[in-house]
Nucleic acid binder design. Sequence first.
DNA 1: TCTGGGGTCCTAGGACCC
DNA 2: TCTGGGGTCCTAGGACCC
Length: 422
Amino acid sequence: MLALVDCNNFFCSVERVFSPGLWNKPLCVAGGNDGIIVALTQEAKDLGLKRGDAVFKVRELIEKHNVKLFSTNMPLYASMSKRIVSILKKSFASVENYSIDESFCYLDGYESLVSLEKYMREIVQKIALYTDIPVSVGIAPTKTLAKVANKFAKKYKAYNSVCVIDTEEKRRKALSLFSLEDVWGVGKHSLKRLNDYGVFTTMSFADKTEAWVKNKFNLPIVNVWKELNGEPCIEISEHIYKQSICTSRTFGKMLHAYDDLKSAVVAFASSSARKLRQQNSVTKAITVFVSSNRFREDLPMYINSYTEYLACESADTLEIVNASISALERIYKEDIFYKKAGVILSDISKDNVMEYSLFDNVDKKQDRKILMDTIDYINKRYGTQKIHLGIEGGANQLWIPKSDNRSKNYLTDINDILTIKI
DNA sequence: TCTGGGGTCCTAGGACCC
DNA sequence: TCTGGGGTCCTAGGACCC
């Protein structure tokens, strides 16, 4: 058995922790550039707002009902996420941190507990006590069934935050009430194909024979089918480090001049390099992509990318930045208004298996390593961007996305710590 | 005026080998 | 009419996830 612990409306709940007056009010969190809604509370959903709505299209609705709108504040959410994961890690031997707001806890060895359900409920209370974040728990023999159970725990108050699928009877009951499009791993495309074959409900899909499913679908859907029938197929995530690292932004305004675009790309490359070093990894491939505004039909459309390969692995900001500049030089075109760009690092491995080039000056490598460590140390201690490359530009970088409604960094910046008056 | 940012896994098909 | 048979590795792009 395993338990999926999932935070309710995570981004919104974190904002509410620091604005307690908002617990029963409608609130939304917008994505980068305050472009689209990425998270919203039940109260906001009840007003007709949806995840993915373009903010400018629903502005009227938001103002009419006095919906509180926040810009994304990832450092705040990441810090809160860490606190919740650390509570789980103290309670279970094996925890897989699946996403910023979800973790799988493996319950092998915990079966002897009088009641798993009761134990999980205590953890829910502990998380609420320590962090104020409401979470829901789904317990089942497979990840996909735990996802199903979790949805029930969220949807129906009577479960009191914890739902268990541990018998065949409960499994069949849950699947007959569960919408096929909500099944983990069934996307738009697969849903349509299933519908075309006359399969419209989760139960009828699970009740198909294995031969039928294998004959018509590829591995991912076959695995979903097995998991719905109680056979675990999705392993514990093996990757202890990311296999690709991306930093990309939609710009606050369109960029035209090469130098402006270059500052953005350099900043993204530099940020990706920092993330790379954080997980003690090195990269060999640096991809830069640029794009015009895909919604502007009156302007020329342009999307392109180029990948530079390093002679040998590196986590050195200067090397990665240089590679990204030469990639940008290959794809930059004049007469284009750029709206988005990004830098992707791939071909990543652990830095302890790093190769050195026969033609490299070893001293230089060591010096660079010390330089990077020092920069990371200073930026960690005194704030990101305290030390950065000159070509990233100053404080008025043109590419910086809009985020007018961003909350403070209550948990990660000493200057933003809340003052409580008693 | 304004339409996000980050990941993973799988597969088909090309390039290459004997 | 016939035009080998069998592999491996790599990559771009699709599908899906939060």
